[in-house]
Amino acid sequence: MSATTMGRPVVSSIRLAWSFTGWRRLVTPLVLVLAWQALAMTGPISVRTLASPLQVLVTAWGLTVSGELPWHLAVSLGRVAAGLAIGVSLGTGLALVAGLSRLGETVVDAPVQMLRTLPFLALVPLFILWFGIGETPKIALVALGTAFPIYLNVFAGVRGVEPRLVEMGRVFGLDRRGLIGHVVLPAALPQALVGLRMSLGTAWLSLVVAEQINANAGIGFLINDARDFLRTDVILVGLLLYALLGLLADTLVRGLERRMLAWRPQLVRN
C-alpha cells in the first residue's frame, strides 16, 4: 500500500499486467491453431484428414450466407427445445411428487431409480420401433435424457431442506402449502438449477445421437452428410456449432442462477 503515494504508475501497470493474465491463457490454444494451419498449408495434414482452420471459417461463412447453416441450426434447436421442455417438466413434476409425499416417493422413486441405471442412449433401437424415424424418436430421446438429471437434483433439493427451517415455518403459522411455497421450493432451487445445467449437457449429447437416426435436417444431418462427401471442413463446422451451443446454454443457466439465487452468500456483494 506504500506504493500508492509515490508510485501510481507502478501500481496501475501491475493492475494492467494482472488483467492480461486472463488473455495469457489463450496463448497455447492460439499457438496450436496456428500450428494446425501451418501443417495444413505445408502438407503434413491433408484436407481429407482435417481441414485447416481457415478453411473451416470460410466454409462456415459460406454455409451461413447460403442459409443452410441457420436452417439446420434452427431444426436442431427446435428438437432440443421440445425435448428439453418435455423432459424438464416431466422430471421436475415427478421429483416434486416423490419429494413432497411419502406415497409419491414409494410410487415414483423406485421405478425412476431403476430406469436411471439403464443407459438411455441404448433405447434408440426401441424408440425407432415405437416412434419410427421421424421427429418423434429424436425429441423423445432428448426428453428421456434430460428428465433424469433434473429429477435427481430436484428430488435431492426438496429432501435436503434444513428441517429446522421447516419447524420455524410451522411455528410461525405456515400451513403445508405455505411451507412448500416459502420454504421447501426456494430451498430446492439451487440444486434444481444444477440439475437444469446437467440436463442441458445431456440434451446436446442426446441430440448428437438422435440426429444419427435417419435425419434429413439438423446439425447431425449436416455432419453425416459431410462425412459421405469427405468434407472434413463441414464436419468441423458442425462440431464447432455443438460446442458453441453447449457453451451458450451453460451461460444462460449461469445468468439464471445469478438472477434467481441473488440471496446466496457467495453471490451477495456487500
Partner: peptide
C-alpha cells in the same frame, strides 16, 4: 395465543429479504 419463538439460531429464510422474513405468515 399466539405463541412466538426466537430460536437459538436466527433461522431466517436466506432467500427472503429481512422484511419478508419478518412478514412471513
Amino acid at each position: 395465543q399466539p405463541v412466538a419463538v426466537a430460536f437459538q439460531q436466527p433461522l431466517l429464510l436466506p432467500w427472503k429479504t429481512v422484511h419478508s422474513n419478518v412478514a412471513l405468515g
